[in-house]
Nucleic acid binder design. Structure first.
Lengths: 220, 220
DNA sequence: CAACTACTTAATGTCGACATTCGACAAGGA
DNA sequence: TCCTTGTCGAATGTCGACATTAAGTAGTTG
């Protein structure tokens, strides 16, 4: 395992991700270049370059001459984000539906059971990790890098911005049912079927999160 | 009409677009920060920030500690790019298929005829402009900003990188048939139909351009 | 002659300081 | 009271210089 010497820019991006995931930074907060530079012991130049990446990935709202802010998404923006994700991943999975081996399908079913179990035990972190594994396996067959690029960027954005909500998203039963539907759609081999199931899955996830957001729209 | 005072960063991005569209810059060329700074009479800082945007939009390949280069896309990358565009736009149009008025559909048909006519007269620039208008009208009904963001970015990337090929893409008859198929799919109101037609349209466009690229893979 | 090494060059990566601009707040007047 | 205006502070936008690194080149050695 090679030790890659990352440029400051990448380190800054990761650092901001951590701030967001840990809750130290939330919707509406401003990312001040001076402060970040001071905290990391570097100058503002690489920070401003890292900002561009965060802006383009939708994790930061840029207001000229004013600053960069963590976006406050409306319910519609949340739903639209997940809908778009469903469109991208639905296609990726549909197109590669025949490439899954029997072992891989069984792995998906095992992951579903594990998710159900951990959800029942309130092991939210485990549920999230297992869900990530389930998701990664599903789209792993695609070799359309352009499609995967957008998919990964959008996944990252949604993950970082809404990670905190995941623990209250679904009941154990719902999680099981949802993922079983996806696996069944995949096993059916019918193009429309799997694509529709995936789209619906993300549409409903978006609605759920938008609903949670609505319950506490502002931050402390 | 307000005069918007653009930041240097945006001006640089536009400048690079012009260099690409005019052919002064082509696949494999390096964008040297010093040179750009000198040409525009500014320092390298805003140029490096503009680079981030170009990189994230796929118009520049970044190689750490080496430089930024205009990408040389493989045939598969070209096809994948257009395929992805078909997925995004196909969904956007499918979802809004009932929102088109009679006048707007007639406008689409008029544009198709005009494209045919101009293509027959070798007025390539006009064909491109009309095609853009056709395309813009088709996706104008969507209010999913996340979807439109990816769509627009991808359109821009493909437009800028392959603009030079458009003049030899299609015969007049092909252009007419293609766009008539899309309009017919829209008029049918059948979800699968219009989405499939749009996907196929872009898949074929991608194949065509990849083929042209293959004929002259390197640049003068 | 091939391969390895040290050097050189030219580009990117980073820094600290200065210039500019937005937004808040206070003072003044209708 | 409300609106306008001027001032001020803090943040972003930009600059020029220096540090670092990758790749080519010349030289050396087997």
């Amino acid at each position: 395992m090679a030790i890659v010497k990352k440029t400051y820019r990448d380190q800054i991006v990761d650092y901001v991700y951590q701030l967001l995931l840990s809750g130290e930074l939330g919707p509406g907060d401003q990312l001040k270049e001076n402060l970040l530079a001071e905290q990391m012991g570097i100058s503002r130049a690489p920070i401003r370059e890292a900002m561009q990446e965060l802006i383009l990935n939708g994790l930061v709202d840029y207001r000229p001459q004013v600053g960069n802010f963590i976006p406050i998404l409306t319910a519609k923006q949340i739903v639209d984000g997940y809908t778009t994700r469903g469109v991208l991943e639905g296609y990726a999975i549909m197109e590669t539906r025949y490439q899954f081996s029997r072992e891989e399908v069984e792995k998906l079913e095992t992951l579903t059971l594990q998710m159900e179990k951990n959800a029942a035990n309130r092991e939210h972190k485990m549920v999230v990790d297992l869900g990530g594994e389930f998701h990664d396996l599903l789209i792993s067959k695609s070799d359309n890098l352009q499609l995967l690029e957008y998919t990964n960027r959008l996944s990252l954005k949604l993950h970082i911005l809404f990670y905190k909500h995941w623990s209250r998203l679904y009941s154990s039963g719902e999680i099981g049912q949802r993922h079983r539907d996806i696996v069944e759609g995949l096993k059916s081999g019918v193009p429309d079927r799997i694509e529709t199931v995936v789209r619906r899955h993300y549409a409903e996830t978006g609605s759920k999160i938008a609903e949670l957001q609505r319950q506490k729209p502002v931050r402390s």
